[in-house]
Computed example of a mutant assay.
Amino acid sequence: MRDLLMRIIYGASNLLLGSFVTVSVGLVVGPTLILIASTPRGRTNAIIMQGIDVLLLISQLFLSLSILILLGL
């Protein structure tokens, strides 16, 4: 029983470390991109907005593909 508990604790520590790193990167990158994009319209703003549009499109693309696969089309 003790061996199983140690495995769970070890797995949870890896999960928490990964979560902490992910959130930290998001807290640094997100506001930085917002500050850059909030400057007057220009080439940089257009590039950032196109990147965000692609990221928003990816989730819809995966959802539509998975529905098509489930339906067998």
Rank of each mutant, 00 (worst) to 15 (best):
R2P: 00
R2A: 07
R2I: 01
D3Q: 00
L4V: 00
L4Q: 00
L5S: 00
L5M: 00
L5A: 01
L5E: 00
M6H: 01
I8S: 01
I9N: 03
Y10I: 05
Y10E: 09
Y10D: 08
G11W: 01
A12E: 03
A12M: 04
S13W: 05
S13G: 03
S13C: 04
N14T: 04
L16A: 08
L16D: 02
L17N: 10
L17S: 13
G18R: 12
G18H: 10
F20H: 07
F20T: 09
V21P: 01
T22H: 05
T22S: 09
T22G: 05
V23Q: 03
S24E: 03
S24F: 12
V25S: 10
G26P: 06
G26V: 06
V28K: 13
V28S: 11
V29S: 12
G30F: 09
P31Q: 05
P31D: 04
P31R: 05
P31S: 12
P31W: 04
P31T: 11
T32A: 15
T32G: 13
T32P: 15
T32D: 10
L33V: 02
L33Q: 04
I34M: 07
L35K: 14
I36F: 13
I36E: 05
A37N: 10
S38I: 09
S38Q: 13
S38L: 14
S38H: 13
T39H: 06
P40T: 08
P40A: 08
P40N: 12
P40G: 09
P40S: 11
R41Q: 11
G42K: 08
G42T: 04
G42E: 06
T44G: 01
T44S: 02
N45M: 09
N45Q: 14
N45L: 10
A46V: 04
I47C: 02
I48E: 02
I48Y: 07
Q50G: 04
Q50T: 03
G51E: 06
G51M: 09
I52S: 02
I52W: 10
D53M: 04
D53A: 01
L55D: 01
L55H: 01
L56R: 11
L57P: 02
S59D: 14
S59C: 09
S59Y: 11
Q60I: 11
Q60W: 15
F62H: 08
L63F: 10
L65W: 12
L65Q: 11
S66A: 15
S66V: 14
S66Y: 15
L70E: 14
L71T: 15
G72L: 13
G72S: 04
L73K: 14
